[in-house]
Write a protein that binds this DNA or RNA. Structure first.
Lengths: 235, 235
DNA sequence: GGTTGTCAAGTTGTAAGACAAGTTTACAAG
DNA sequence: CTTGTAAACTTGTCTTACAACTTGACAACC
């Protein structure tokens, strides 16, 4: 055995993974297609089955394939939440500061709300209103309140209709959630948030992008200040 | 053997990976610390060595550890480029449209250049000028020209001083590069870009954030139009 | 003919043992 | 104290084996 298919002798599994990834990414029409069995792949690449398994584990982690025991390996499209998970790890390892995240949030959402105001339909406005109404009935349940809050802002990104910006915003949620939760502890902050949301909804209904942008900027700037204060008092 | 440490019987390696990840992320001070050997881990979790190896492969893919043959496994901080790689895969698999990416770019860079104008030092301006000067001497070499172009914009993000926005912008580069390269094929586009860059540099030197924002928006909007035209003529 | 139950083949998940390749450590020689 | 070497340790790969699960075909039955 040990037939050499042009693969060097170090980091074998990495190289096999790279080859397979190239094959998969080269043609997006292959989604849901079945991969050859691990045995066949091992024979084809001239390596052992464990090496192929490691390569497939890497691809699985990258979201390019899914495996079912006894079923086989199938090509899939990566999940959008991967970016978010990546970001959370970066934050956990101290690579990103909370201030930067919040400032980035403001930049993103100001752009998003402008686009949302230009695109919003009556149905869109109704959904936002429903979320904001639900937030009014969460007295005490901070976790639920924060969840709905995030959902409100994520919904504006959906209305804006830009997938890229939606992914960016989503990638901040994991880091933002505890910060928003802390900011909500300040007296009046919860009601303030509701009011701002309502004003934003009204802007979207009128299609007033300029005003929506201004209100959102105020809303998030104040929210960031609240978080800073809450952080100080905790220490 | 087969001692049960509380881990179920399906997706063993996933569960081991999750446990190890929690241990690693729980304390950021453990960076560069050595993990127990695969044998010890296997014994500790009550699983076989291949299972531990798969778990470590997952962590390696997530950038949380590095392994050296004969040396051991060490905890590391994930690379910032991981987000970029993620995004490239999403784009490759057709999850993101090029239009969305370019619009997101404009949103990001408009915010970035404002912050950059407020922070820029004389040294920062000098570096930007150096990049732009280098771009003037790349006649014909489109690849080099695009590379410097991206570097110019990435440098503004560094000047802005927000790590989060810098990561976002960097994550677009892989998708943006071929688009910028296509746009540069139009007559006059290259010279136009240089002029816009120069105007932006001047704004930063004066600390004129409003003007910088306006010029950047013009620059990128025109660049996007050029790409759209170039794309049409190619087909 | 259509449906269903059963079985065999194929596939992934896990285990165990072995060796190769590289690193680290300890110790002895200088 | 330095240096060289050997032993122990660790990761990388291979092989074999079996368990768990899925798929597909085939036969029995309605």
């Amino acid at each position: 055995m040990n037939i050499d298919f042009g693969i060097g002798r170090s980091a074998l599994s990495e190289q096999v993974a790279q080859r397979l990834e190239k094959m998969i990414l080269s043609d997006a029409t292959q989604v849901s297609q079945k991969l050859p069995s691990e045995q066949v792949l091992a024979a084809g690449f001239g390596v052992s089955r464990p090496v192929v398994r490691e390569a497939l584990t890497i691809l699985k982690e990258r979201g390019l394939i899914t495996q079912r025991q006894g079923g086989g390996s199938y090509i899939t499209t990566p999940d959008l939440s991967q970016v978010s998970q990546c970001m959370n790890r970066l934050a956990m390892m101290g690579q990103i500061t909370s201030e930067d995240v919040y400032i980035a949030r403001i930049s993103l959402e100001v752009s998003i709300i402008r686009m949302a105001a230009e695109n919003a339909t009556a149905e869109d406005v109704r959904q936002l209103q429903a979320i904001n109404d639900a937030m009014k009935t969460t007295d005490g349940d901070v976790e639920r309140r924060v969840q709905l809050d995030m959902q409100f802002h994520q919904q504006t990104a959906q209305i804006a209709g830009n997938q890229m910006l939606a992914i960016f915003l989503d990638s901040l949620n994991g880091i933002l959630s505890p910060m928003v939760a802390a900011a909500l502890k300040l007296p009046g902050a919860a009601q303030d948030g509701l009011n701002y949301h309502q004003r934003i909804i009204d802007c979207l209904q009128r299609g007033d992008a300029d005003q929506a942008e201004e209100v959102m900027r105020q809303h998030l700037t104040l929210s960031m200040r609240n978080w800073e204060v809450a952080k100080e008092t905790e220490q």
